[in-house]
Every structure is written in structure tokens, then in C-alpha cells.
């Protein structure tokens, strides 16, 4: 039942991003109204490189502290020029509204002296309706 509610929320929010190639993540902004104690966002990380990369999805609050959100999937391999949907379910934690950052992170060239982690963060605002 709980899963059904969450799924219904995810469908109801109506965030219908247009996945596009050569973007690291879309959308990067969003407002969600929810009638349950969670709100859901679907994001589309994309791999602009010409080879497979490992992608991690993380959720942070406004102070960049980790948020206990459910991310499906949170770590995955993404083929070159590919994009895939990721469902993020964020609890309100008793609040009436919540702002979170959903970040796509990857280190495309690991195991080198100075590595660069590219992080694309979208800002999302969830509002609980009674």
C-alpha cells in the first residue's frame, strides 16, 4: 500500500522532464505538490562522454547535508551518450515543505593524481497539501 501511494505520488507530481542528450541532468528545477508524507521527483542523468561512466545520485538539503531519500537506482553505469530515469522519493519529515538538491556525480577519469568530480545539482521544492 505504501509503495502504491509513493508510486501514485510520483505519477501525480507530473514532473515530465524531457530527457536530452548532452545534459548531465534534467530537470534542474522543479516544484512538487504532494498529498502524502513524501514527494517524488524523476530526474534524467545523462552521460555526455564517449565512453561508459559510473554515476551516483545523492540528495542533500540546503546546507548540503545528506537527506534520507529513497533513490532508485542510486549508483549505476551509464553508457556513452545515454540517459536514464532515476526516481527520488523524499520524505517531508513532518514539515509542510522541503527544499532539496538532487545531485548527479561522476568521476569520469578515476585513479589519477588530481581527480575532478563533476557534480550537477538540481533544486527541487516539495510542498505538502492537506
Amino acid at each position: 500500500m505504501k509503495h502504491a501511494r509513493i508510486l501514485a505520488t510520483a505519477l501525480a507530481v507530473g514532473l515530465a522532464p524531457i530527457a536530452a542528450k548532452a545534459q548531465s541532468m534534467s530537470p534542474m528545477r522543479g516544484e512538487v505538490n504532494s498529498f502524502t508524507d513524501v514527494f517524488a521527483v524523476r530526474v534524467f542523468p545523462a552521460n555526455p562522454y564517449d565512453r561508459k561512466i559510473r554515476v551516483e545520485i545523492h540528495v542533500y538539503d540546503q546546507d548540503f547535508q545528506p537527506v534520507d531519500a529513497r533513490i532508485s537506482p542510486n549508483v549505476f553505469q551509464l553508457a556513452s551518450q545515454a540517459s536514464r530515469p532515476v526516481l527520488v522519493v523524499v520524505p517531508f519529515g513532518g514539515a509542510a515543505e522541503r527544499k532539496v538538491r538532487i545531485c548527479t556525480e561522476s568521476i569520469p577519469f578515476p585513479n589519477q593524481q588530481t581527480q575532478i568530480r563533476a557534480q550537477i545539482c538540481g533544486k527541487f521544492f516539495g510542498r505538502r497539501k492537506s
Binding site: Q23, S24, S26, M28, F109, Q113, I116, A118, I120
Partner: peptide, 15 residues
């Protein structure tokens, strides 16, 4: 068009 951003790492650095 919503704000979008693409970061493509070309090279890592050397110290």
C-alpha cells in the same frame, strides 16, 4: 527552457 548545465571533464590536473 529550464536552467541546464553540462560539465565534461577533459583532463585531470597534475600537482
Amino acid at each position: 527552457i529550464a536552467p541546464t548545465c553540462t560539465l565534461v571533464v577533459a583532463t585531470n590536473g597534475t600537482m
